[in-house]
Nucleic acid binder design. Structure first.
Lengths: 228, 228, 228, 228
DNA sequence: CATGAATGAGAATTCATTCAT
DNA sequence: AATGAATGAATTCTCATTCAT
C-alpha cells in the first residue's frame, strides 16, 4: 500500500528557490540562479546536520563550494536565507492544507484522508531539516513563531471547515478538537521522521488517518479495522 | 470545574534546584543555596524571554543580580545550568507518567483521565520556558534529544500498559496509537501555553481527555458529551 | 552686484575629465570618453553625499549606471579616480592664484580684489565635493596632504608678491599675514558653502575682500564702507 | 615672549576621559578608569599617525597594550570612542570661547587678545590629532559636522558680543566679519600645527592677534608695530 | 564567597578587485 | 567595451570563560 508520490505535494513543485533581500534586488542569470540553488541546498544539508543555531555561514559556503563573499551576494545573513527556505515550506503547507478533501464516514472517506495524511507526511519529511530548524528558532524569533502559528491555524481552519460539512455533527467543539488532531498529526510525524520513535511510515499514516476519521468524521473503526 | 492543583504535580515538589558540576563538589551553606536558586530562576526568566541560544550568561547574571565569576562558581557553563533545569523537568515528567491511572470506559474513567491530563497541562505550563528551550536544543545536542526521547517513550509505554488492561482491546496497534495520542496531548498543550492558539485550559483538557478516552479506552462520547 | 561668472574660473574650463592609469594607456573613442565622464560625475555626486572614505566603488558604478568591471577599465582604483578629480582642481586653483591682480589702496584696488575673491568662491563652490573629500584624505594620505600644501603655498606666495609691490609696506611680516589671510578666505568660504554658517555669497565676498584690502594693501575701510 | 601655559586651557584640566556607552552604564573602579585612560591615549596616538578612517581598532588596542574584548567593554565601537574624545574637546573649546576678554583699542587690549589667541593655539595643538580626525569625519558623519558647527558658532557669537561693546562700531557687519576672523584663526593655526606651513607659534599668534585687533576692535597697527 | 576586569578565539560581514563570458 | 559573478583578505564585534583582588 505504499503510495508515496513522485515528489512531496505531488507534481506541483515550485520553480526554484527564492533568494533573500540582496538577490531579489537584481536580475539573476543562469549562473546566478544555479549558485542560489546550491546555497539553499547546502544550507538544508547543514541545518540538518547541526541545527540552525550551530550552523555557521562558513559551513554553508563550504558545502556549496563557494565563498563567503558569494553568500552575501544572495542573502543578507543566515536568517535571511532561512526565511527564504521557510517561505517555500509555508507556501507548500498552505496548499496542502487547502487540499484537505471532504470526508465521509465510509471507507472511501477514510481512504481519502489516509492519502492526504500520507502527503502531509511526505512533505514534512522532505522539509524536515527546515522544519526542525524552524522549531529551534521559534523560541528566539517572534516573527518565525508567528509564521508557524499562521500555518497551524490554517490547518485547523480547513479541518474545522470539513468537519462542519458532516451531519450530524460528530464533535461538539470542532475548533478545539481540530487543534488536538492537527497537533497529533504534526507531532507524531515529527517524532517518526526525526527517529525519536521507530515506526513505519505507512503504519503511522494509517493510524493517524483512522483516529482522524473516527474522531472527527464519525468513522467507525471496527467494521474494517481487521482488514490489515 | 477548575481543578488546578496547588502546585504542579501536586505537593511533591522537589526540595530545591540542584547545581551543576562545580556546585556539587562542595557543601552549600545558606547563602550559597540562595545564590544557586537566584541563578536558576534568572535562567528560567531569560530562557523564557530569549530562548536558550540567544540567552547570554551575562543576561542571566544580570537578572540574578550577581556576577560572571559567581556564575562559574555554581555551574561549569550555560549548558550545565540548563541540564540541571532539565533534570528537574524529566524527573517530574517521569513521575507523572507513572501516575497515569487505570481507565475504564465509563464516566469515572474519563474523569480520572481528565484529572491526569490537567496535571500534565499544569506541569507543562510551569516548566514551559525550560521545555521550549529544550526543543531548541534538540536539534543541536544529541544528548538533549535523547533525554527528550526517553521521556516521550516513557509516556508511550505507560499509556500502552493501561490500554492493554482493557478488554476487549479497543485498538489494534496500541504502540502507534499511543504515539499519536501522546503527541496530541503534548503538542496541543504546547501550542495553547505558548499562546500560538487561543484556547482555555479546561476546554482543552476536556477535549484531550475525551479523545483519549474514546480513542484508547473505548469510551463513548455521545452519552454524556452534552453534559457541559 | 551679483557677479557670478558663467562657470567657475570664467571660460577657461578644462576639456574633459582625465582618466586614471588604465584609461591613459589607450585611445578612448567617443563611447569610452562618455563612460569616463559618467564615472567622474557619479564619483563627485557620491563623494558629496557620503565623503571619500564612506563612498563605495559600488555606489559610484550604480550612480554611473555601469558595472564594476567597467570601472576598472578606466581607473585602477578609487584613489586613482580621486587623484584625477583632484588634478583638475589643483590645476584651476594654481591658475586662479596666478591671476591675483595688483591691488592698490583705492576703491579700484578693492574692486579688483573683490572680483578675484568672488572667482575663488565660485571655483570653490563648484569643486566643493572634491575639496571636502580632499580634506578627509589629508589625514591619511601624505601625498594628498602634500598636494594641498603646494596649492596653499602657491596662494600665499602670490599674495606676498602682490603685497610687496605696495609702498610703503603696509605689513611687517607679509608671509605670516598672507598665511592668515589665505586661511581666512579658504575657511570662511568652506563654512559658507558647506552650510555650517548661513551667509550670502556676495556679503561674504565683500567682507573678505574688505579685510584683505585693509589688512594687506593699506585700504581704508571707512571712507566708502557706508556705500552699501 | 613665550607665554605657553602649563597645560592647554590653563590649570582647569578636566578630571579624566569619559567612556563611551558601555563604560557609562557601569561603575568604574580604579583599574577600569586606568584602562579607559590608556585606550583614549592610544586612540589619540593612532589617530595622529594614521587618521581616523585608516585607524583600526586593532591598532588602538595594541597601542594600549590591551585586548579587543577590553576595548568593547569601554566603547561600543571606534566612533563611540571618538565621540568621547570630541566631547572633551568641545567642552574645552566652549569654555575658551567664553573666556574671550573685553578688548579695547589700546595696547592692553591687544595684549589680552594675544594671550587669548595663544591659549587657543595651545589648546588646538594639544588636541590636534582629535581635531584633524574630526575634519576627516565631517564629510561622512552629519552629527559630527553639526557638533563642529556648534563650536564654530559659539566662537562667532562671543566675538560678535565683544565687538558690539566697542564704540564707535568698528565694523558694519560684525557677524560676517567674525566668521572671517574665526576662520582665519582656526585655519592658520591648523596649517601651522599640521606643519603644512612653517611658522613659529609666537609669530603666528602675534600676527593673528594684530589682525583681529585692527580688524575688529579698531586697534591701530602702526603706533607700536615696530616694537618687535 | 563574590566580583569587576580581562581575554582571545571564533563568527559575521564588507568591499576592492579580478575573472569569465 | 561591457558586465554579472566570484573571491577572500581584512575587519569588526561577541561572548564564554578565566583571573586577580
Amino acid at each position: 500500500m505504499k503510495e508515496k508520490a513522485a515528489g512531496p505535494n505531488g507534481s506541483r513543485r515550485r520553480a526554484g528557490p527564492v533568494g533573500g533581500a540582496p538577490a531579489q534586488s537584481r536580475e539573476l542569470r543562469r549562473q546566478g540562479r544555479e549558485t542560489l540553488r546550491k546555497l539553499c541546498e547546502a544550507a538544508i544539508t547543514v541545518f540538518d546536520e547541526r541545527g540552525y543555531n550551530a550552523a555557521r555561514v562558513d559551513d554553508i559556503v563550504k558545502a556549496a563550494k563557494t565563498s563567503h563573499g558569494t553568500f552575501y551576494l544572495y542573502f543578507s545573513n543566515k536568517e535571511d536565507l532561512f526565511q527564504a527556505l521557510v517561505s517555500g515550506v509555508t507556501e507548500e503547507m498552505r496548499e496542502l492544507a487547502g487540499e484537505l478533501p471532504s470526508v465521509d464516514a465510509n471507507r472511501s472517506g477514510y481512504e481519502e484522508l489516509r492519502s492526504w495524511v500520507g502527503r502531509f507526511y511526505d512533505l514534512y519529511e522532505h522539509y524536515h531539516p527546515v522544519i526542525r530548524a524552524w522549531t529551534e528558532l521559534n523560541a528566539q524569533n517572534a516573527e518565525m513563531a508567528r509564521r508557524g502559528a499562521v500555518v497551524l491555524r490554517r490547518f485547523i481552519e480547513q479541518l474545522v471547515m470539513r468537519v462542519k460539512e458532516v451531519d450530524p455533527a460528530p464533535v461538539t467543539d470542532p475548533e478545539t478538537a481540530a487543534l488536538a488532531m492537527v497537533s497529533m498529526v504534526e507531532r507524531a510525524t515529527f517524532y517518526a521522521i526525526g527517529g525519536l520513535v521507530h515506526v513505519e511510515r505507512d503504519v503511522l499514516v494509517e493510524q493517524l488517518a483512522t483516529i482522524l476519521h473516527v474522531g472527527m468524521f464519525g468513522g467507525t473503526r471496527r467494521r474494517w479495522a481487521a482488514r490489515k
